[in-house]
Simulated assay, not measured.
Amino acid sequence: MQQARVDQFLDHIKANIPLVNHMGLNSITFNGNSVAFHISLTPNLNDKGTGFGGSISAFCTLAGWALTTLALIDKDLERSAVVKTGNIEFFAPITEDFIVNCYSSEATGIEQLIEQVKSKGRGRLPIIAEIIQNEKIAVRYEGIYVAFEG
């Protein structure tokens, strides 16, 4: 998928989820198998001067939705997508601008999603979203997303 289409998707997010306009989401990249959100820390600070857990959780949840949606768009299979389950663990504080990297937790997860949608009209995608700082995982989110006609 061309970056221009991904940039249009970011514009769509900002137009339809107004809160995102205030959260420092600068850009999105998508390579067919993963999505990366590039985020400024400053609008996401807590009272301790580190990343606010609510913002971090929101970005991880949104990244999973974006991966599911972009993977379908990439194959001309636009569907509605929603989060079904999500669990987040915080291992270290976020102390600088950060990237949320999101990918399927199964090696063939995206391919399975595409096949399920083609054959049944709906499908599921298990994902992992991570934030790495100082060469260590600072945050890890695991979720399941579902896509359906609607």
Score class of each variant (00 low, 15 high):
75 K>Q: 15
76 D>Y: 00
76 D>H: 12
76 D>N: 14
77 L>N: 04
77 L>F: 00
79 R>S: 02
80 S>N: 13
81 A>I: 02
83 V>P: 06
83 V>Q: 11
85 T>C: 02
85 T>Q: 02
86 G>L: 08
87 N>K: 12
88 I>L: 05
88 I>R: 01
90 F>W: 00
91 F>E: 02
91 F>V: 03
92 A>P: 06
92 A>N: 09
93 P>H: 06
94 I>C: 07
94 I>N: 07
94 I>Y: 07
95 T>S: 13
96 E>Y: 13
97 D>R: 11
98 F>K: 10
99 I>F: 05
99 I>R: 13
100 V>P: 00
100 V>W: 05
101 N>M: 10
102 C>L: 08
103 Y>A: 02
104 S>E: 02
104 S>D: 01
104 S>N: 01
105 S>D: 10
105 S>H: 06
105 S>T: 14
106 E>M: 13
108 T>L: 12
108 T>A: 13
109 G>H: 03
109 G>S: 01
109 G>I: 09
109 G>N: 04
110 I>A: 00
111 E>H: 00
112 Q>W: 06
112 Q>T: 12
113 L>H: 05
113 L>P: 00
116 Q>R: 02
119 S>G: 12
119 S>L: 14
120 K>N: 14
120 K>G: 08
121 G>L: 12
121 G>W: 12
123 G>T: 09
123 G>H: 04
124 R>N: 14
124 R>L: 13
125 L>N: 05
125 L>E: 08
126 P>A: 12
126 P>E: 03
127 I>P: 01
127 I>H: 01
128 I>H: 00
128 I>V: 11
129 A>F: 06
130 E>H: 04
